[in-house]
Design a protein around this nucleic acid. Sequence first.
DNA 1: GATGAATGAGAATTCATTCAT
DNA 2: GATGAATGAATTCTCATTCAT
Lengths: 198, 198, 198, 198
Amino acid sequence: MPRVTEQHRAARKEQILDATMRCVAREGFHKTSMAQIIEESGLSAGAVYVYFRSKRDIIAAIAERAISTIQPMVDSPPQLADPPSPSEIIEMITTAVVEHAQSLEVDVTRVAVAIWGEALRDESIREIAVEVFGRIRTVLAASIQAQKDRGTLAPSTDVNNAAKTLFSLMPGFILQRLILNDVAPASYAAGARALGIP
Amino acid sequence: MPRVTEQHRAARKEQILDATMRCVAREGFHKTSMAQIIEESGLSAGAVYVYFRSKRDIIAAIAERAISTIQPMVDSPPQLADPPSPSEIIEMITTAVVEHAQSLEVDVTRVAVAIWGEALRDESIREIAVEVFGRIRTVLAASIQAQKDRGTLAPSTDVNNAAKTLFSLMPGFILQRLILNDVAPASYAAGARALGIP
Amino acid sequence: MPRVTEQHRAARKEQILDATMRCVAREGFHKTSMAQIIEESGLSAGAVYVYFRSKRDIIAAIAERAISTIQPMVDSPPQLADPPSPSEIIEMITTAVVEHAQSLEVDVTRVAVAIWGEALRDESIREIAVEVFGRIRTVLAASIQAQKDRGTLAPSTDVNNAAKTLFSLMPGFILQRLILNDVAPASYAAGARALGIP
Amino acid sequence: MPRVTEQHRAARKEQILDATMRCVAREGFHKTSMAQIIEESGLSAGAVYVYFRSKRDIIAAIAERAISTIQPMVDSPPQLADPPSPSEIIEMITTAVVEHAQSLEVDVTRVAVAIWGEALRDESIREIAVEVFGRIRTVLAASIQAQKDRGTLAPSTDVNNAAKTLFSLMPGFILQRLILNDVAPASYAAGARALGIP
DNA sequence: GATGAATGAGAATTCATTCAT
DNA sequence: GATGAATGAATTCTCATTCAT
């Protein structure tokens, strides 16, 4: 099959990564064997290794996917004239997370937890996590700054500190949803407001 | 069998679990091999299998340890007449977490992340996580209730929802500390207060 | 098909064999993969398999090349009136070997060692080696016969036995040059003469 | 099986190396798979890897064996008052080689050829070959020196050069025996004497 | 109870070769 | 003829677990 397009290559890579996501969401990175990925992808062992040099590379690619998966979730809908408040952002993101998780065959949040674990033992995965965390925090910091400008938050507010604290609501939601399964975007955001978060 | 033997058994189990904690903090559960645990514990393969029937059992025991490790952290110091406020609790727990992590040779928070991942694929580990999460949430709910009683939080506050949101600050702190390494208990609690959390 | 195509075929085969020689000189036959040969030759996998049916065929072709490579080395320069003496032949051949090895990008003697190994497990490679060894021995036998005729060697000399012994000086030189790297044609021939070889 | 002696370990290693020798004599190093070694040794995969960390280690151990295998062959029988002459040494060594090859189930000379090939691509194997070659050359040099002292060889003889040339008779004999199968110790040594070697 | 050698299924990866385009 | 993606058996090595001593 000569003259195979870049498109074809990209599609195959997606095929492998899609299969891997399904496996990892179920079993985590290290309980997912290459044999499972191969089986799930419908390709042969050799084919998988044409597109990825090692299992580590596949894991890294999965982690990188998180960046592009998260991005549309954290980007505020452009039609909003006013920047959303922190609790609104929380509700927006958690809603997007839940919807995404339910619409696809894989729950990305399960993969996210696997990535957190991998970030602790693989520096290059950690770097990817650093970037994702940073992007989310930036969005949250902008919202906090807007509240401060508007007077809803005290002028003395340290935006970065507040963003770090606010950021926690994202992984905390994911974790409680997956393990306790008793959180929902609306009530979670309501809880944030009840605590005083604008 | 006399008590001495029971003590011996317990000591041996601790020895194995201590060794495992060190390994898991470094590499996670699945990159930790039984050979590593055996080597690190200084015991023989056979001996380890006398005290634990399988690697899964060791992982479960490690997860159960989290309960007793967390308990003293979340229990408010008894000398305090007033129950601490939510942000005070956050600062207390995060401080305890950081101090614990620095004083011991293993950073328990790294093991915690490994447990979160394992809870997604092993129901019995999930049950343990459910219990740990529940205990922490209970402490937080009590504090929120106290604030509500005192009038610091609105009477309409849904204590459970607020506790769920507040709970997130714990795993969120752990994750940011391990991956971004730019959070500290005092400023983190300050961030919480800046956001309006009492 | 016109002649041009035949030339083309031959050129392509050379291209593949040249590439293989480079690989084999480095790593031997079995550590040289088809992928390396394909890469080194600049052709596609399919193209290589058009010219050679299998890796074994390529190895066999490499071995056959040895025949034509060795031939000009063992053939005495025709201008010499007198046939050279055994030690002179040794010096001529070893000199040719060293010069050849240095002038080309591949050291054929390294390939020769690989062929010796392969001859032990593949009958058809052995047959090729038999032919090469035989040709060299024939040249040496002729020289010994000439010495005998001239009276430099005893009339009782068994020409064939002497040729077998003399033959050893060739692989022995190659091996010591490659592994110990402390032999040179002139001193090697001098050593032969010191031992009494005319 | 606790309290396993060093003897036991050594015996197991021998068992694995014996099996490997049989395989390598047949197929060379790289056509011998770990599966074959495992099968031939009668052990399990895991057991083999308890004694050798990798296939490379096994190959290295096989090469090291050559040293101790060669040593008794090159050591002159101590009862000889006079040191043997070069051609006598050649006959002794080649006789020992042939007898050894016929008495054991493996022909060590076939393994030797495999080692020569491996020495060209693995530095540590080369080092072992250097040592073996050096030992043989030392024995030959001593014999040449004795001949020189006795006046059988010219006083101008460069002992080292002559030893290098003489050394070649060993690998040359091995190679001709394995590939052409038309050499025998007695006639080979006779050939050496016919060429003038004392 | 303790030991640690042994097991063998399973892991990741490679490789000679094929064949649809 | 030429391409190079695809194949899948084979390769090296690991690992949780067992059991004779």
